[in-house]
Design a protein around this nucleic acid. Structure first.
Lengths: 174, 174
DNA sequence: GTACATGTAAAGTGATCGTTTTACACTCAG
DNA sequence: CTGAGTGTAAAACGATCACTTTACATGTAC
């Protein structure tokens, strides 16, 4: 496997499971079987690595939630949690741990959330045939809520969000 | 002001604004104007201080969202954000930064979320006259979603959550 | 065959981490 | 008057932080 890819996926796991600040560079290089010199050649700094990890996660995430209905959207979220675990939004966690003060990270976070909103806009159009900003906002909030509530309520959170979204859509269709 | 109270409120601000792990003990003692020896006499360890901060925040938070309607609930959340800023749920952030591995913190988090769910259960009863688990779950998810989406969407997130909750309640009343 | 890119291992940078220690001042109850 | 309690300032603890440096092994391209 490519050395960049290997390091990014190792780092993503460690950051996700133990937190960004709590994960030291020694632990990262050791887990990935890579020298620290190579790491810094590739990513420049820890913040650079964090940004790279988040960028890769953004691509992977949006590839997986490529859905055209609310049911499929929350189904994809459920599958994601089943495979990767639910520990809250990694983008918001990175933003919080850095106090919002690292531009590269704040930008990836903002881009990720914008894409999420666009995806949901498209799903709303597919469901009811036209744009509905209020409905899309509600589904985004349910999605965000499920993402975080799943850390302490498990799959029931995603289920509840899906059901609520269905009701709101049914109400909007009439 | 009492020395414990002063330290807890100083620590809450620093933890919230800069992250738990990123906030060192030196910064804490200096900001509170307190010797590190005194800090350790009172709280034993950094984890002990974090748990104390979260416990105090839990009390303050639930005192402020003591509402008897969804409108009042989201109104209280909006006021909270206006005064304290929106950087996501501090309990989930603490849990994430510690990798879920600190029992004292995991317990405060769980207790906090249980109380939130109970409060919402009560509000649902006040709104529609009887229990409705699915509706309560949906409102919890909207609340959680607004809490986190407000970090990047501002007050619009709370507004959207309130409107969606109103619709769901209107649907449940018929 | 030599120059370059890409990797490793390992030691060292100074700073900062959470925590403890030493030494000293003040208050107040017995 | 004394001893316990509560506070301070400041230095020290070893560990770990993010990051750099030195020295050396590759394979590959001109």
């Amino acid at each position: 496997m490519d050395i960049r890819t290997r390091l990014i996926s190792t780092a993503e796991q460690l950051f996700d499971r133990h937190g960004f600040t709590a994960t030291g560079m020694d632990r990262l290089t050791q887990a990935a079987g890579i020298s620290s010199r190579t790491l810094y050649k590739h990513f420049g700094s820890k913040n650079g690595l964090m940004a790279a990890v988040l960028n890769e996660r953004d691509r992977r995430f949006h590839r997986r939630i490529n859905a055209d209905s609310v049911d499929a959207l929350f189904g994809a979220l459920e599958a994601w949690f089943a495979e990767e675990g639910a520990r809250g939004c990694l983008f918001l966690r990175a933003w919080g741990e850095t106090g919002g003060g690292v531009p590269e990270i704040a930008e990836v976070m903002a881009r990720h959330k914008e894409r999420l909103r666009q995806r949901i806009d498209d799903i709303v159009v597919a469901e009811i045939g036209h744009r509905d900003d209020e409905l899309a906002e509600a589904i985004l909030l349910l999605f965000e809520g499920a993402t975080h509530a799943a850390t302490y309520r498990g799959g029931a959170a995603v289920d509840g969000a899906r059901r609520a979204a269905r009701r709101l859509i049914a109400g909007a269709r009439t």
